[in-house]
């Protein structure tokens, strides 16, 4: 007896439902405990505060503090991408959920998409909290000439960033402690390279090679564009190259993520490592 194949519409619906459900789990789970929400807004303020005070100490204008606050908010997304996207299959495997995803009739990409959507919405709430709290506590100036452009760049940055997260998740699908260590390794170095805590527009002192390396990370491009629009008061014309670069990042990273996921899944099935725990 052979069953008829699912129609493309059925498949699409199933995958959309799975993506929505995974997003819902992330939203529900992360916001259920207020302690977590408060900590995720409050903790970055400690670091941001230290840098804002340092900027004041060395006599830079208050706009530098605004740049740091935007950087701190964007770091929330990067941390989310690292710990809740890149190493997510590791957690799912440890809790026995990965097996369930693998025996379900959905593309793993839709599960990742759900994680990405949930993560970006969740982190946006936290990032907004960080920005508002930062403005309130440190009284830094913003100059928002074109809010729509800020919104556009922000969304494009998130899309590119979470697509990168999907790629990392796929690459690390079979790994355990290595995934964890790599995620750790990509924290401070990326904070540095992306210029999250210092406005790179002020920083010709940063060697070109480092700036080039930093530009490979979508966050760096997005950060620079948002700072130009939200702090310097520049218009969308100033950030066209950024917009194109972010779109290009997404277009390159998405198929790569898909390929990596298929490859790692079939490798895992071949070697029997997909559901192997305690690695």
């Amino acid at each position: 007896m052979m069953l008829p194949k699912a129609t493309p519409r059925e498949e699409l619906l199933t995958n959309l439902r799975a993506a929505y459900a995974r997003m819902w789990v992330r939203l529900r789970g992360s916001n259920r405990e207020v302690t977590g929400l408060v900590a995720e807004i409050g903790l970055p303020i400690l670091t941001i505060g230290a840098y804002v005070i340092l900027y004041r100490a060395i006599g830079l204008p208050p706009t530098a503090g605004a740049a740091v606050i935007i950087g701190g908010a964007m770091i929330a997304f990067w941390t989310n991408v690292l710990w809740n996207m890149s190493s997510q299959w590791f957690w799912e495997r440890e809790s026995g959920n990965l097996e369930m995803y693998l025996v379900a009739p959905v593309s793993r990409m839709s599960v990742l998409l759900g994680m990405a959507m949930g993560g970006s919405v969740n982190t946006s709430i936290r990032a907004l909290g960080i920005v508002l709290l930062g403005i309130f506590v440190f009284q830094v100036p913003f100059q928002l000439a074109d809010p729509l452009s800020v919104g556009l760049v922000f969304v494009l940055t998130l899309v590119a960033l979470y697509t990168m997260g999907m790629l990392f998740a796929s690459i690390f699908m079979l790994y355990g402690r290595e995934a964890w260590n790599t995620a750790s390794l990509l924290q401070e170095p990326v904070y540095f390279l992306s210029g999250a805590y210092f406005p790179r527009i002020y920083a010709p002192v940063v060697p070109f090679a480092l700036q080039a390396a930093g530009s490979l990370i979508p966050m760096t491009i997005g950060l620079d564009a948002i700072r130009r629009l939200a702090i310097n008061g520049e218009g969308v014309a100033a950030v066209w190259p950024h917009i194109l670069a972010l779109i290009a990042c997404t277009l390159i990273l998405f198929p790569l993520a898909r390929r990596a996921l298929n490859y790692m899944e079939s490798l895992g099935k071949k070697e029997g490592r997909l559901t192997l725990r305690w690695q």
Binding site: E10, L13, T14, N15, R17, A18, Y20, A21, R22, W24, V25, M100, Y101, A104, P105, V106
Partner: peptide
């Protein structure tokens, strides 16, 4: 509910 959605119900 979550697991039901993985089967597109």
């Amino acid at each position: 509910w979550f697991f039901s959605q993985l089967y597109g119900l």
